[in-house]
């Protein structure tokens, strides 16, 4: 099957003003200013097949949004070739727009003071959606996203979770072939996050809509996207399945054992000691297969164990681990 999106050596550089600090710096900047070139996206290459769900992951400022903006035709790549649905997105922005849906997590596309329904109705005109198709889609989305209760309420009265569901519905009304979501779960509470994730996974599964989503929440990836593209500092770090990343890296969960009194040195076979603070000892669990029970069995009774804390690695941790293991993975990243 032909790729629905393909990026080949895509680059994007911005020119940014250097701010000068202090009163003297401020006065100086009245007369002269200096700029720095920022390479937000650097030599990115990947191909996405129709029907895939891909998580685009990276810390803040990694160039995720810039990449989304290029794929949606908002920005032109500085170098490289980019193709979406067989077209160059920037030069075919309007035609591209008809076939994609875009959700920006932190900027609303709904009309703030009007009922949700009105924004939907306007989109029917913007995208020329046939009447019957629109009614079907609206009914489906309203039910799936449980929006019935607030369809006639002004957007300003909605909770963030309700609003985000409406934003997603708005982006799907015209049956886009691809939906881009920029941080769709940011700021949502646990229940709302869960609803959004389940819905997106279902749209991908049942309607075959290709999903590209940026996030810095690993759970988004776990529940929606089998495939993960990881970037940092504009560069592609990893492209492949999440399970492979975990397996390759080891999950490196962090374990802290707290004792009533310092039990002395306590080396373990199941976990590696990373820091010893006497009564509190920090370990890393390298092997996915080892459970907390295994570790506790090894520690055994008699040390006066008081408390146990197990932390899953967050994205920063994964990326840190990733950097440490970069050489090892160099061959594995496609």
């Amino acid at each position: 099957m032909a790729a629905i999106i393909s990026a080949d050596g895509v680059d994007k550089t911005f020119r940014q003003l250097k701010r000068q600090s202090g009163l003297a710096g401020g006065l100086r900047s009245l007369f002269s200013r200096t700029y720095t070139e920022i390479r937000a996206v650097s030599d990115i290459t990947f191909a996405i097949e129709p029907g895939e769900a891909v998580g685009y992951l990276g810390p803040n400022g990694a160039g995720k949004s810039t990449m989304i903006k290029m794929m949606t035709g908002i920005l032109t790549p500085s170098a490289g070739a980019l193709s979406v649905l067989g077209r160059e997105p920037h030069t075919n922005r309007m035609r591209n727009a008809r076939e994609i849906g875009v959700v920006f997590g932190q900027r609303s596309q709904l009309w703030w003071d009007l009922p949700v329904r009105d924004s939907f109705a306007l989109n029917r005109h913007i995208y020329d959606i046939p009447e019957a198709r629109f009614a079907d889609n609206l009914a489906f989305l309203t039910e799936m996203l449980d929006m019935g209760a607030y369809l006639d309420r002004p957007v300003r009265q909605l909770s963030l979770g309700q609003r985000m569901r409406a934003e997603i519905a708005l982006a799907l009304l015209h049956d886009p072939k691809i939906i881009f979501l920029d941080e769709p779960t940011i700021g949502l509470d646990v229940v709302a996050k869960d609803a959004v994730r389940k819905f997106l996974a279902r749209v991908n599964r049942e309607r075959g809509t290709t999903i590209i989503l940026t996030t810095h929440d690993l759970v988004d990836i776990e529940e929606i996207c089998p495939r993960l593209i990881m970037v940092d500092d504009g560069k592609l770090l990893f492209d492949g399945e999440l399970t492979r990343l975990r397996a390759d890296l080891g999950s490196r969960r962090r374990l802290t054992l707290e004792f009533a009194t310092d039990p002395g040195p306590l080396p373990l076979a199941t976990a590696t000691l990373s820091r010893d603070e006497g009564a509190a000892k920090h370990y890393l669990l390298e092997d996915e297969a080892i459970s907390l029970i295994d570790v506790l069995n090894e520690v055994g009774r008699g040390h006066g164990l008081k408390d146990v804390k197990l932390e899953e690695p967050d994205i920063e941790e994964v990326i840190r681990t990733f950097y440490q293991n970069k050489s090892r993975l160099a061959g594995a990243a496609s």
Binding site: T72, G73, I74, M94, R95, V102, F104, Q106, R107, I126
Partner: peptide, 14 residues
């Protein structure tokens, strides 16, 4: 600055 201009550019409207 807020990025809402981007939201206009992803619509199939002038």
């Amino acid at each position: 600055r807020l990025g809402t201009f981007d939201a206009i550019l992803v619509k199939p409207v002038g």
